[in-house]
Each structure stands twice: as C-alpha cells, then as structure tokens.
Nucleic acid binder design. Structure first.
Length: 606
RNA sequence: CGGGGUGUAGCGCAGCUGGUAGCGCACCGCGUUUGGGACGCGGUGGUCGGCGGUUCGAAUCCGCCCACCCCGACCA
C-alpha cells in the first residue's frame, strides 16, 4: 500500500476525548475513527491488524478441534424468551421490532442461537463432542463506553462453544481453551493473567477471565504475592483473621450518640473494628419459579471488613441487588446507623428461618462467616443512639444464611498459602465459562446416550474481543513517538520510506523497485511515497509503528544501500540492495522467533 | 441513573463585560526546500451542538433539549 493512496491520514493532535494512550495513538495513527459513543469505524490499518488477530484466533481454535461457523447478529427474541434472558437482561440488550412487530434482539452473545442449533442438530452421543466457533459482531448497549476500543458498544468477538456428553469432556475442552487462549495472547505479544471469575449473567459453574494488567483496567484483581492464587475481586477469597476465643458475655445496651459508622463506633467505645458487627442493607430481585421476588437482604459482616456485593448476590441467588433506601430499612424494623438483626422479627430465636409475612418485603438475614466465630461483638440495638455490647450468634439472633460475603483487600492473606495479597487493575481480554446445562436445559438440548437415555448436552462458552485485544496490545507496545507493534499484529511488516533526492531520480527509482520486489516476495509493505519532508515521514513511521523501517535516500545509497531500522530499536544499518530481501527476512524471522519464544505451556489454575 | 466537565473549521484551541468569528495545525495553488512534524506568497473551509426566549442586535445573557468526555452505579 502506498501512503499516498491510503484512505485517512495521521493526526498531529489527538482528539481531546482520547484519554488513554491506546485510544489516542490509534486515533492519531489513523487506525480508528469514532462514529458514536462506543462505536468506531476501523480504517484500513486497524482492519489489517484485526485480520491478523483473527487469523491467530482461527489457527488456535482449529488446533483444538474447532470448526468455524457464522451465526446471525439479528436474532428473533423468542429464543431469548425461552432462556429467560429476554426478561433478565436489562437495557444493555439492543431490541427492536421487525416490520411484523416481532421482537428482535441484537446479539450480545450467541448462547441462545448455539443452543437452538444444537437441539436441532445433535441427537446422539455420536454427534458429540464438538467445538464450534465464530467471529462475529456483537452489540451491547453499555451504560458507559470508555477508553477508546477498551469498552465499546459494538465489537467483534471470537466466541466458541464446546458441546460434550459429560463433565469430563467439558473439562477437557475447557482446559484446551485455557491453554489455547494463552497461546493467542502470547502470539499477539500480550502478557495476561488468568484469574478465577464470577460467572455472572452467563450462569454456569467455573469461569476464568484473562486479564491484561494495567492501571486503566476496570476490573480489580486480587493476586497472591507468592503466586499461589489470583481471582477477580468479585469472587476473591482470603483467610479471615480469626478472633481470639473468649467467654460469651451477657449483652448490654450502651449509649452511643451519633455513632452511625463503624469508624465512629470503634473510636467512641475504644474497641477495634474487628470487635464490631456491621449491618448493610440491600433490596434483591430473586427469581422464584417464573417470578421475580423482591427481598430485603440484611447482611452482617465484621466491622474490619467490607461487604462484597457480588458474593452476596450469588449467595442469595439474586439477579439484581441495590442498596436499600432509608424507608425500606425502617420498614423492617431496623434503625439505620444503629441496626442489627437482634430483635427483628424473623431473626428472633424460635421464629421461622425464612420470614415472609413481614411488612414490606420478605426479609433475609445473611451473615458473613466471620461473625459466628467472633465472640462478643458490638452491634446495633435497633434504637436510635444505642448499641449492644457482647452480641453473639446464634445466642442472640438467627440468620437465614451464613457464608462468605467479605471483600478481599490489599494486604489480606492468600487463601492458599497465607502470604499477603495485592490488588491490581486489569482489562478483561477474554473469558472461558463452564456453562454446564444452563442453556441445554432451558432450550432442550438433549442427546441419546449409549443406553438410549436422553441426556442434556454439557456446554462451555469461550470469548475473546478482537478490538479490545488490539487496544491492549497498543497499551503494552508504544513509546513517546507512537505505536510499536509486535510483528504478528502489525498491519504491515515493513514501512518503506522514500526520501527523494534533489538532484537525481535514483532514490525514487530504487524505492519504487524495492516496493514491487518486496511485494512480489510476499512481504507486506507500507510505502511512504508522499512528497513530504523527512521529518513528517519519520514521525508518521514512528506513529504507525510497523516493526521494520526501510529508508531509501541519496545518503543511504551513497553509503551503499538502504537503511534498515527496527521500530523497537535505535540502531540503523545500511543494507546493500542485493542483500536486502535476505536481511529483511532474517529480521522478520528474528521478530517472529521472539514472539514464538513467548508461546509456552501455562499451568492450569483451576 | 447520580455527580462533574465540554460542545466555535477535519484536529487542537481563543473569543463569552452582547455589535454579524479568529489563531495554530491540516487541506488547495505557486515557488523554494528535502535525514526527524521546513519556508514564503496566495487560498478553501464555520446555520458558533439544537430549539425557544430576552434584546434594535446573541457564539456571548436566560430556559429546555441533545451529543460527547470523566468519576461513580452498572456491566457475558
């Protein structure tokens, strides 16, 4: 491609809204252009890079037995009604009516269509296992698109779906993806970490997210400093510091004016926060059969820890969780700032464990598992200005559920080895899910086993966002002058710069010939044949960031050849024309070898 | 959805004590330049986000709306 012919141009200044470096550089280098919030046009350079990534995706998917298909972006809503997600998913799903007023869905993922396909095609265990995948556009009406290609509304994703007769088969395909995904990222030069994650709206059993660690990431990760454990903070476990055993003391009401926070309370009573119980209130939407029931969730956690909403939502099987309003808190008989389960109807000893006849919403009391093992805690008295000393579970109150609902923090201890945990930010560049029978059950994907018995197909789903991956590579590979693409992702391999001589046409003729010769030899060349000054051309070359730069000029020819320079290095060498192709191939091969060396076996962290 | 911010030429910005819009870059033409974003001369390009109001007169003041960005909520 000649730059003089290239559609679009580089920008000297990035648009003011581009805050993260990948967004800014991809804009300036002429890779992407915004169309709307979270919606981009990919210009030729970006398109080529994405095609490189897609080729890697195809190779790695094919290598683990995948077969590529293509499923539609526009789908009838009926399928989504069958799985219930039409109702579960909120406004992030693009919906519209076709001309016959039928509800239609813009694909935000493809489980429904896959499952529908599977129930039509798979009848026998002989049809399994299979792995199908496609690379397709998806639309999610994200509440807040941001950071250029990192979080967009319309994007291209590779998603694959494994189909198995049993859980061992799923595990096998899951592990195959686990490694294949590392291969994909490593071949793109990207350093990632696989962490255990919440299975969220996908449902399912086990999930990993692949994280590119960066401060601009939206996810918070908990990572063991000794390397034993890593997880998304949403599901991260940790070792809770046990409370010292004590005799249970009788509870006692004390005046605690204006002590509405744990901080105030601990200071006022001069006790550590770990000797207090903190109450947090939510309204949860919980599916019961066909219906959604709203429940008041009364969560209690030791005062030295914070509540983890994802853990709580999972514990009560809530579809949606929001903080309760002050009125809703009062309606269950609790006093905000001075609340505890003690004395609440439904929490009193001897009462039924699942109170439902309460004014307002049904009440569910959930204790963090730190509470039963911590004696003599200070808790609210449900009376303005008063707390109770020495409250003890289950002596003083009951709960519906005791489980881990605590949020991991920097410095907490690793659940595996006890070393301190650290927190990092990351961008999720892919994920793998053991779906199990979530979609097989709701859409009726069954096969007949050897005994002729119907069994549900066991599914897994696995996704990688192509544009986000590209953006993360740009985040990892750039310098002050621009992008520095890994050779495997670069839109072209070589940036050929012509500096026209003022006296003779020799440089131009040489560059033109080199351009056609390299192309004929199968080298991908971007040829800067423009009539611009050297500064402009070099700066653009640095900005676009192709791995190898060749400069044809009178000066270089006078020195006996063409100048070759790697984008990632500062050294320049003069290569005689006769050796150019061989030298170039060697340089590219060396770059490829650097990448290949990164593609290694990764231990499965299940 | 809550909080904050910004909308003036393709991009970056000024103009905002009201008087019919400007700078740099980019772009077009001519000439000079040619190894790190060159220079001269001459040009093109804007319903000042939209609608309504105040006023003799609105980019500027007021109201409503929209878009975009940031923080949070949310998020396979």
């Amino acid at each position: 491609m000649k730059i003089s012919q290239l559609f679009g141009q580089t920008l000297r200044d990035a648009p003011a809204e581009a805050e993260v470096v990948s967004h800014s550089l991809l804009m300036r280098a002429g890779f992407i252009r915004p169309v709307g919030a979270g919606i981009f046009t990919y210009l030729h350079l970006a398109k080529r890079s994405m095609q490189k990534i897609e080729a890697i995706l195809r190779q790695e998917m094919d290598a683990i037995g995948g077969q590529e298909i293509s499923m539609p972006v526009v789908q009838p809503a009926d399928l989504w009604k069958e799985t219930g997600r039409w109702y579960q998913i909120g406004s992030e799903m693009g919906r519209f009516n076709d001309r016959n007023k039928h509800d239609m869905v813009l694909a935000m993922t493809h489980e429904e269509v896959v499952a529908d396909l599977v129930r039509r095609e798979v009848q026998s265990y002989k049809h399994l296992p299979r792995l199908i995948y496609h690379i397709q556009t998806k639309f999610r009406d994200e509440p807040r698109p941001r950071a250029g290609l990192i979080r967009v509304r319309e994007f291209t994703m590779k998603d694959s779906y494994s189909l198995d007769t049993d859980w061992d088969g799923l595990d096998k395909q899951y592990r195959a993806h686990y490694q294949a995904y590392f291969n994909i990222y490593h071949r793109c030069g990207l350093e990632v970490l696989a962490v255990k994650s919440d299975s969220g709206m996908m449902g399912g059993k086990l999930a990993h997210e692949y994280m590119y660690l960066t401060p601009i990431g939206e996810d918070t990760l908990i990572i063991c400093t000794a390397g034993d454990y890593s997880a998304n903070r949403q599901v991260a476990r940790f070792q809770k510091t046990p409370a010292a055993p004590e005799e249970l003391k009788p509870s006692e009401k004390v005046l605690t004016p204006n002590c509405k926070s744990i901080e105030d309370l601990a200071n006022f009573l001069n006790v550590p926060k770990s000797k207090t119980a903190k109450a947090v209130f939510f309204m949860a939407q919980i599916p019961e059969g066909e219906e959604l029931i709203e429940k008041f969730i009364f969560a209690v956690i030791r005062g030295d820890m914070e509540l983890n909403e994802t853990k709580l939502a999972n514990a009560v099987h809530a579809r949606d969780l929001r903080p309760a309003t002050e009125d809703e808190i009062k309606a269950v008989g609790a006093v905000p700032g001075f609340a505890s389960p003690i004395g609440l109807a439904g929490a009193v000893q001897g009462r039924p464990q699942t109170p439902s006849r309460y004014p307002g919403s049904p009440l569910q009391i959930v204790l963090d598992d730190s509470i039963p093992s911590s004696p003599n805690l200070v808790a609210g008295a449900n009376e303005d200005g008063y707390h109770l000393l020495n409250t003890n579970y289950p002596r003083d109150y009951t709960a519906d559920l005791v489980t881990d609902i605590a949020a991991a923090e920097e410095g907490f201890l690793c659940p595996e080895c006890g070393h301190p945990l650290r927190m990092e930010r990351g961008v999720e560049v892919g994920n793998i899910f053991k779906l199990g029978t979530r979609y097989s059950d709701s859409l009726g994907c069954t096969f007949l086993d050897r005994e002729g018995q119907p069994k549900p197909v066991i599914m897994g789903s696995y996704g990688i966002g192509v544009g986000r991956l590209l953006a993360c590579v740009a985040e990892q590979y750039h310098d002050d002058h621009g992008l520095v693409w890994p050779v495997t992702v670069a839109p072209y391999q070589v940036h050929l710069v012509l500096l026209r001589g003022k006296n003779t046409p020799q440089a131009e003729e040489t560059a033109d010939k080199l351009y056609t010769d390299l192309q004929a030899a199968g080298v991908e060349v971007l040829y800067d044949d423009r009539d611009d000054s050297p500064g402009v051309k070099f700066n653009d070359a640095d900005l676009i960031g192709l791995p190898v730069r060749l400069t044809v000029s009178e000066r270089a020819l006078a020195q006996g050849g063409v100048e070759m320079k790697l984008r990632s290095k500062s050294e320049k060498i003069i290569v005689p024309l006769a050796e150019m192709l061989a030298e170039l191939r060697a340089a590219l091969a060396a770059l490829e070898a650097d990448i290949s060396a990164r593609v290694t076996r990764v231990d499965y962290n299940g």
